[in-house]
Each structure stands twice: as C-alpha cells, then as structure tokens.
Design a protein around this nucleic acid. Structure first.
Lengths: 219, 219
DNA sequence: CAGCGTAAGTATACAGTGTACACTTTCAAA
DNA sequence: TTTGAAAGTGTACACTGTATACTTACGCTG
C-alpha cells in the first residue's frame, strides 16, 4: 500500500462520487467516505476539487453531459422531444442531481454546451429571442417539475407504491380528505398508472401548445 | 432573564425558523442559531420538534397553508390558474421551500388539504381519476419547474441580472457557444423580459392544452 | 398551604462534518 | 546527484445534530 502516487484525477474523483451518490444519495457522500472509497486521504481530494460545493458542481455537469444534445438545424419539435426524454432518463439515474440544479451557479462546460444546442435548435427554426426564452423555460419547467414529483414518490422498483407509500395512504384521514383518499387508493390498486406514459402525454401537450404559439407569432 | 418558562410552542419555533430561513436561507439555520434567536437553548427545541428534518417538514406545511385553495365546484380552469399563481408567490417568498419538496414524505395537514381541494375541483368538473392525475401532474410540473428555474437565476430585486449574473455572461465562451452568448447578452440588455408574464403565458398554454385533452376524453 | 409529580428547559458530551495549515514523500528534469 | 515543485498526508479546529441525564418551575391534590 504505497502512501503516495495514487494517480488521482479530478475525473476519477467525480466519477466515484457519482457512483456513490447513485448508490446511496448525497448525504452519506462525505469527503471522508469518498476518499476512503478511492483509497486516499480526505485532504488529497482538495488538490483536484476546490471544496465540496465545487465537487457537486462538477458532478452536475457530468449529468448534463449524459443528455442527448439536440441537433441544430433539425426540426425543433422532435429534437426537443428527444432531449426531454433523455433529460428525464439522466435525472432518474442520478436522483441526487435535480436537487442541485437550483443553488448551482457557474454552469460547467457540458451544461453550457447543452443550453447552446437547445437555443441554437430553436433559433435556427426561426424562433425570436423572446420566443426562444419562453419556449425553453416552459419546456424545462415541465421536465424538471415532472421529475421533481416523480422523485418524491415512494415507489418501489416495479413502479408501485412501496410500504412507505402504503402507510402514508393508510394514515390519511379519509373523512377529511375524501378526494385525496379516493385518488391515493386508486393509485394503491395501481389502476394502470404508467409514469413513462404520463410524462410523454404531458410533453406532447406542451409541445403542441408551443407549436401553436410559435406559428401564431411568426407565420 | 428567567431560566425556565419560555413558553415555547411548536408554532413559535416554526414561525421563527421560517423567518430566519426567509432572511438567509436554510444552511445557516441551525438548531443552535434558531434557539438563540428564540432566547432558548438548543435542546429545548427538541421538546416541540422531533428533529431537524421534522422541523423542515413542518415549515413546508406552513408554506402550503399560504397557498390559496381552489374552490371545489367552481370552474376548474380559473381555479387552477389562481392556484398556480398563488403557489408561485408562496414559493418565491420562501425560496428555501422548493428544495424540500422532494425528500419530504409524510405531508402535513395543510399539504393534504391543498391536494384534496385540487383533486376535488377536478373531479367535480367531471375529470376521471386518471385524467385528474395527468392534469395535476402536468400543472404541478409546470409550476414547480418554472420556479426551480426562477430560483436559480442570479437576479437582483429589480428583476435584472445582478453582478454574479453579469460575470457569468462575460465569462462564457462566445465563440464556442454563440447561441447561448447571444441569448444571455440579450438578457443582460434586458430587452423586456418579464418573468411574471412568462409564467402566465406558459401557464395559459398548459391550461389550454389540458382543456383540449379534457374535452376530447369526455365530451 | 405543603408537597409531589410531571412537564419545560438545561448542561454536558459525543461522533461526525468540511477544511486550513504545515508537513512529508515522490518524481522529473537540470 | 541535486533540487524543486507536485502529490498526498496528519493533525487540528470550529461547527453540526442530538442522546442522556440533570435541574427547575408550575399545577394539582391532600
């Protein structure tokens, strides 16, 4: 066990940090636990990372790099659809990432590249600058907000409610909140709720609305 | 300065915690700082609150209680619109709250009451259970996602970019990310970007899309 | 009015956090 | 072979949430 020359790199550190966060979330990911997982000492990480916050920034940027870029010049609607689905899948495989999206300033290169591609696709489809902003904001709002909700649901891997979910449903006051109880119970019985499908249906509603608006503003 | 009989209550504690979080965010809100602000000792809080997490849960529930409830029986579209705008204003006055929305299980009474009213309004307007879920999910996604983006923007109180924002724009590589640079610069020059307006325009697009869907599913 | 039980608030202590600072080890080039 | 910077280490500190055992003060009962 050599004491020095661990050949650490920023990339290896971030990679390992992501791996651990994927496995157990962000909270148990401490500089000490991460260092141990890398066979290094806590302080060695600070050669490659300014501090924990900076590390989280870099982790988020890696997540962005996993999102399929829209292709500038192609039809905006299908590119946006593809991007939305890809974003969701990235944020679902890294459940810790969404919570970092606010609070992060200084977007990394992958994030900038991603935004640039999105904006470029819309601009080259004839969207004005305000229309581009409006479109992007609405789309991203839908994507992030949907995932935010999805992440907070106590679902098992099969997509059903897990025990926590069941206990919540059983604890809620059916007399006081009849509508909530009815809906929650229906979800317990799992009357065919498919979140993948919900996401795409909602996405298509949003895209359709955006297309109507775009056509009305620049015929 | 009497040592005992502080007449603490859970409500007073949560109220003060919200006040402090509104002022400086969630991170400097420690059990110690909160206790000091209340003129009490750290451990005294644990009589009224199970632990910090529990306290955060209760704080979130207060935020939900500030949201205007939709009125069951009224026209769903105008009630949802009103609720959306009210939700945004609550989450903007308590910037720390959105980040807690995931990770929180065991919704408090105000949260349950709120959800019950939303579901009730839709159900009484003739929405089926799956349609209700789809509608609520899409609407909440938009609301939460929009605010998530809004919170992460480095804006001054006037709504313009602050110095942080300006520095970000100036640091981005204009040659590599031309579209991003163009849009960011336009925002710097503030060519009439009004987030209130963006929010409502997007909201109306979503509502319109939902109305079309609802009519097609139950004529 | 005495005294007692319980609730309210306190003091101390501990394990765990991020990270500043000063140190040692290692390697590459001179 | 020497040397100087780069890589990794060890120790230490201030701070966190909170468990546990304590003290204080009040409301009730006799």
């Amino acid at each position: 066990m050599p004491k020095h020359r661990k050949d650490l790199t920023t990339e290896k550190i971030i990679q390992k940090a992501i791996e651990l966060a994927d496995k157990s979330g962000l909270e148990p990911l401490t500089m000490r636990s991460l260092a141990k997982a890398l066979g290094a000492t806590p302080m060695s990480l600070y050669r490659y990372v300014a501090n924990r916050e900076d590390m989280l920034d870099k982790m988020v940027d890696v997540v962005f790099s996993e999102i399929q870029l829209p292709i500038i010049g192609n039809d905006w609607r299908s590119e946006m659809r593809k991007r939305a689905i890809s974003t969701r899948s990235a944020l679902l495989s890294h459940r810790w990432a969404l919570g970092l999206l606010d609070s992060r300033l200084q977007p990394g290169p992958a994030t900038q590249k991603h935004h640039n591609a999105v904006i470029g696709t819309l601009r080259e489809s004839g969207f004005s600058i305000p229309l581009t902003t409006q479109t992007m904001t609405l789309l991203d709002a839908y994507i992030y907000g949907f995932i935010l909700q999805e992440l907070s649901l106590p679902l098992s891997e099969s997509g059903n409610f897990d025990e926590v979910g069941e206990s919540i449903v059983h604890h809620l006051d059916q007399a006081t909140y009849p509508y909530l109880a009815e809906l929650a119970t229906a979800h317990l019985d799992n009357a065919g709720f498919d979140f993948n499908n919900f996401f795409e249906v909602g996405l298509d509603i949003v895209l359709e609305g955006l297309e109507v608006m775009a056509e009305s503003k620049q015929p």
